[in-house]
């Protein structure tokens, strides 16, 4: 119980954000209308993805300095979980874009960047599959992971800010927090982010533990 308290908090927060996100009053804005509720689901997916990729890079660095097989397993399972959240982020974004911008895939730099960074992490998984020897696979994929991370940061946070974008907070647009987020929404949005991030980490650790069990079965 002492170890699992944060999992309970994660479930409660996610449940609260779903129920609260659908029921609590939101400001009625032009174009957005009720679809503004998607903010509680779309944005936390990206935060979770970034956090999971960050965890993965940290464990890749740890692997290179320690050579501990478990660090490598944690790195790859974080990427696996991160990719799921990346796809969910794309999916929720496409639904939202379809109703507010009139097109599920408008030519928006942030969208393209997100898709490319997902490709990058899928390339990481392909690279892992192409290497058979375990230690070599761990080391080389860790190197690629660390190499790709700064490029992903440029892709997601710098390039979209340089051009016109439909997303708030990019290309000179005001950020979402500036105008549209009222206090009611903050009470749902921040817990939602926290809850989804913890849920993502939980998924990654579960997958890591399954992999570790499989490996120990193979050894015995």
């Amino acid at each position: 119980m002492t170890k699992n308290w944060w999992k309970i908090i994660a479930s409660v927060l996610v449940l609260y954000s779903i129920i609260g996100g659908l029921l609590i009053e939101v400001p009625s804005l032009p174009i957005l209308h009720e679809s503004i509720r998607n903010l509680y689901f779309h944005v936390p997916m990206w935060f979770t993805m970034i956090i999971l990729y960050l965890v993965s890079v940290i464990y890749s660095i740890k692997y290179l300095s320690s050579g501990n097989e478990n660090d490598d397993l944690l790195a790859v399972e974080s990427v696996n979980a991160g990719i799921i959240f990346g796809f969910l982020g794309l999916l929720t974004g496409m639904i939202w874009a379809n109703y507010t911008w009139g097109d599920p895939w408008p030519n928006d730099p942030k969208l393209n960047s997100a898709a490319i960074s997902t490709l990058m992490y899928m390339a990481y998984l392909v690279l892992r599959n192409s290497l058979e020897e375990e230690q070599k696979r761990a080391r080389i994929s860790a190197i690629y992971n660390i190499f790709a991370f700064p490029v992903m940061i440029v892709l997601l946070f710098i390039l979209p800010r340089m051009t016109d974008s439909l997303h708030p907070g990019n290309g000179g647009n005001p950020g979402f927090g500036g105008y549209d987020l009222d206090d009611n929404m903050r009470w749902v949005f921040y817990p939602a982010c926290l809850g989804w991030i913890m849920l993502g980490v939980w998924i990654a650790t579960l997958r890591y533990r399954i992999r570790k069990l499989e490996n120990s079965q193979l050894d015995s």
Binding site: L119, A123, S130, Y144, V151, V154
Partner: peptide
Amino acid sequence: ALMAILSFPVIIP
């Protein structure tokens, strides 16, 4: 083949 897969996403930005 791996070279193309690994390098294209990194070079796109």
